[in-house]
């Protein structure tokens, strides 16, 4: 065994004891940092209002209609990607009576331009599936939904209503 090898072995033994000493350590500290953005604010700002319908006569409302349902998204991160999806009713009710309602694959639309232009919107989308889009530069978005009711010929008179829900989720992108 050479002298150098002996020295190295000896150091190993000694240091195994010495290493726990605080004087043998050097440290560096960095930070993990993250900024949590303000939560999204989503509101239903206008109902999908079919007005008066006639028994036996279907009535459809387009997303560009002033009576279309409208949701307003605010206070999101500028340009952040979101996913939104609807929970849609299949019927409206009035007491014990029901009125069929349906939504087509083009019955939703959104706008992210500064004026939230409804017609033409930024994009027409399918309300039956999840949509991925980006918020406007001001962190907002307007979403419209249309639909079609189909009263029967013997539809009972009354005020019919149902809930339409939208869920908006930031994707982190």
């Amino acid at each position: 065994m050479s002298r150098r090898v002996k020295l190295v072995l000896m150091l190993t033994v000694v240091l195994a004891v010495a290493a726990p000493g605080v004087s043998a350590q050097v440290t560096g500290t960095i930070q993990a940092i993250a900024t949590v953005a303000a939560s999204l604010n989503v509101q239903g700002t206008s109902s999908l209002d079919f007005g008066t319908v006639v028994p036996g006569v279907d009535l459809a409302l387009a997303t560009t209609s002033i009576e279309a349902g409208e949701f307003t998204i605010q206070s999101g991160p500028a340009g952040a990607e979101v996913q939104f999806a609807f929970t849609l009713p299949t019927e409206l009710t009035s007491g014990a009576n029901s009125l069929a309602i349906a939504f087509a694959t083009t019955d939703a639309a959104y706008a992210t331009d500064a004026l939230r232009t409804q017609n033409p919107p930024t994009a027409v989308v399918n309300p039956l599936i999840t949509t991925t889009a980006n918020l406007a530069a001001d962190g907002g978005m307007a979403v419209w939904i249309g639909g079609e009711v189909s009263p029967t010929a013997v539809q009972a008179a009354g005020d019919y209503s149902g809930d339409i829900e939208i869920s908006v989720t930031l994707t982190g992108n």
């Binding site: 002996k6 020295l7 190295v8 000896m10 150091l11 000694v14 240091l15 010495a18 290493a19 000493g21 004087s23 043998a24 350590q25 050097v26």
Partner: peptide, 15 residues
């Protein structure tokens, strides 16, 4: 021999 900063080193009289 080779000493690391911060690490005391002892040489035994047997070494």
């Amino acid at each position: 021999g080779d000493i690391f900063p911060g690490v005391p080193n002892t040489v035994s009289k047997r070494a």
